[in-house]
Amino acid sequence: MQLMVNGKAEIVEGDNISVADLLAFKQVESPDMVSVQRNGKIVDRQRYAEQALAEGDEIEFLYFMGGGARR
């Protein structure tokens, strides 16, 4: 499945990929500290596991730390 993640094209193997799967695939260290936008709309955090992604989705990971990586 091809997605646009933070403005870059990404190929993610597999079917029925959820937002939670994508966070794991992208090895986001602190998923608590990121919010996810799908095609311009914020995804409800309670639904990360059930929210399926579709071919060509534009996904944005938005960190709220205001600068500051989790080491």
């Binding site: 933070n6 944005e60 960190y63 709220f64 600068g67 990586a69 989790r70 080491r71």
Partner: peptide
């Protein structure tokens, strides 16, 4: 720009976050 937009977790300015403070 990516960091300011919240797309990338990185340090920019100590008033916002700093590695020693975060530790």
């Amino acid at each position: 720009a990516q960091t300011f937009a919240g797309r990338k977790p990185a340090y920019v300015y100590t008033r916002l976050a700093n590695p020693t403070v975060q530790d």
